[in-house]
Amino acid sequence: MANISTGQWTLASQDGIDALHYDANSTKSEHDLGPDDVLVELYAASLNYRDLVVTQGPLNSSIPIKVIPSLIPGSDGSGRVLAIGSAVASARPDLKPGVGVITHMCPNIADDVLPSFDAVADGLGGMTHGTLCRRGIFHHGGLVRKPSNLSHTQAATLTCSGLTAWNALMGCKGHEVKQGDWVLVQGTGGVSIAALQIAIAAGANVIATTSSDAKAERLRALGAAHVLNYRMTSTWGEEAKALTPNGRGVDHVVDVVGPSALPESLKAVRQDGLVTLTGMV
């Protein structure tokens, strides 16, 4: 049986994914902790487009992210606290050995501050070691309690795409998605699927776009009221608007595509509605 307490990925250089190296014997222990650190045994980690960008470096990416030497990549992960540093008990009494936790990408910002791009670049899996390891050491500000109703696999998907979706739908004061609203999401990427689920949980009606009939069925199964195939219907923005009561338009568009999709997003949204542009591309 494999030893689940050892093993980590490191990035030797930013020359692409081939520069990733797996060390099956590497591990961390409580003896490696600083006063503000927490030792976590990680049970699950998820990947984002950001992780691909991290491997590419400034010569190969239009949106480069600097990294520390021998970086452990990955911003998203879920696990269990094994040990805490001497200052953690007073700073974070919620973090005790045995507690389930999720990593937060930006450990060094205040709780009430939205992260800047620099904070994201400096965060886990960039200028700070991340989650692609069996055991990780994180500043206590980079951890939150895991919801008890989620498995570690589910919880590990929340940090990047889940928070992006939440901020898109709930982060603009006065425009928080509520019951009865109409929300448009694009495609089946992590942010779009999270936004769909959050909107459904809030009681909103969701219109989703996709290019795949199989994915359309999955979107309906997740609760989408309508699914539009953007390859077959290039004027999907107008079609989405027509699906809303009296053709008034959707209240909120979560646009993950950018310039090529923005004209249709603007056609879909109602007057005084909100189009949120998300992502790095």
Results as ranks from 00 to 15, higher is better:
residue 63 I to A: 12
residue 256 V to I: 15
residue 110 A to V: 03
residue 24 A to P: 13
residue 103 T to A: 14
residue 61 S to C: 13
residue 151 S to W: 08
residue 192 S to K: 09
residue 6 T to S: 09
residue 142 G to Q: 10
residue 202 A to H: 09
residue 89 A to I: 01
residue 238 E to Q: 14
residue 63 I to Y: 15
residue 218 R to A: 08
residue 26 S to Q: 13
residue 198 I to C: 07
residue 238 E to M: 13
residue 87 A to R: 00
residue 81 V to T: 01
residue 46 S to D: 06
residue 13 S to D: 14
residue 276 T to M: 05
residue 276 T to A: 13
residue 62 S to G: 12
residue 1 M to V: 11
residue 32 D to G: 02
residue 151 S to M: 14
residue 18 D to W: 00
residue 42 L to C: 10
residue 28 K to R: 15
residue 187 G to R: 11
residue 45 A to I: 05
residue 13 S to Y: 04
residue 193 I to D: 05
residue 219 L to R: 00
residue 138 F to C: 05
residue 247 G to D: 10
residue 125 G to K: 00
residue 43 Y to P: 02
residue 216 A to K: 12
residue 73 P to L: 06
residue 206 V to T: 07
residue 196 L to M: 15
residue 194 A to Y: 09
residue 64 P to N: 11
residue 211 S to D: 06
residue 13 S to M: 03
residue 117 F to Y: 09
residue 145 R to H: 08
residue 207 I to P: 06
residue 80 R to K: 15
residue 194 A to I: 01
residue 262 L to D: 04
residue 15 D to Q: 15
residue 2 A to M: 07
residue 151 S to C: 14
residue 150 L to N: 02
residue 171 G to N: 08
residue 104 H to F: 10
residue 262 L to W: 10
residue 65 I to A: 04
residue 173 K to Q: 14
residue 109 I to K: 00
residue 128 T to H: 01
residue 158 L to G: 08
residue 47 L to R: 01
residue 242 A to D: 12
residue 250 V to G: 01
residue 77 G to N: 09
residue 29 S to K: 02
residue 31 H to E: 10
residue 125 G to C: 04
residue 39 L to M: 13
residue 224 A to T: 04
residue 244 T to A: 02
residue 156 A to G: 06
residue 256 V to H: 09
residue 20 L to Q: 02
residue 83 A to I: 02
residue 121 A to W: 01
residue 233 T to N: 12
residue 43 Y to E: 08
residue 127 M to K: 15
residue 239 E to V: 13
residue 233 T to E: 15
residue 201 A to V: 05
residue 189 G to C: 07
residue 222 L to Q: 05
residue 83 A to S: 07
residue 256 V to Q: 07
residue 67 V to A: 01
residue 186 Q to F: 07
residue 159 T to G: 04
residue 132 L to Y: 15
residue 241 K to S: 06
residue 160 C to K: 02
residue 175 H to T: 09
residue 200 I to T: 03
residue 116 S to Y: 05
residue 39 L to I: 06
residue 129 H to Q: 02
residue 208 A to H: 10
residue 23 D to Y: 01
residue 136 G to D: 06
residue 125 G to I: 01
residue 40 V to F: 03
residue 81 V to H: 03
residue 205 N to K: 14
residue 186 Q to R: 03
residue 126 G to S: 09
residue 78 S to E: 04
residue 180 G to R: 09
residue 85 G to Y: 00
residue 214 A to C: 05
residue 236 W to C: 02
residue 14 Q to V: 03
residue 135 R to W: 06
residue 143 L to P: 07
residue 27 T to G: 01
residue 276 T to N: 00
residue 104 H to N: 06
residue 142 G to Y: 12
residue 183 V to I: 15
residue 201 A to T: 14
residue 178 K to R: 13
residue 220 R to Q: 14
residue 233 T to W: 10
residue 151 S to I: 05
residue 8 Q to N: 11
residue 216 A to G: 12
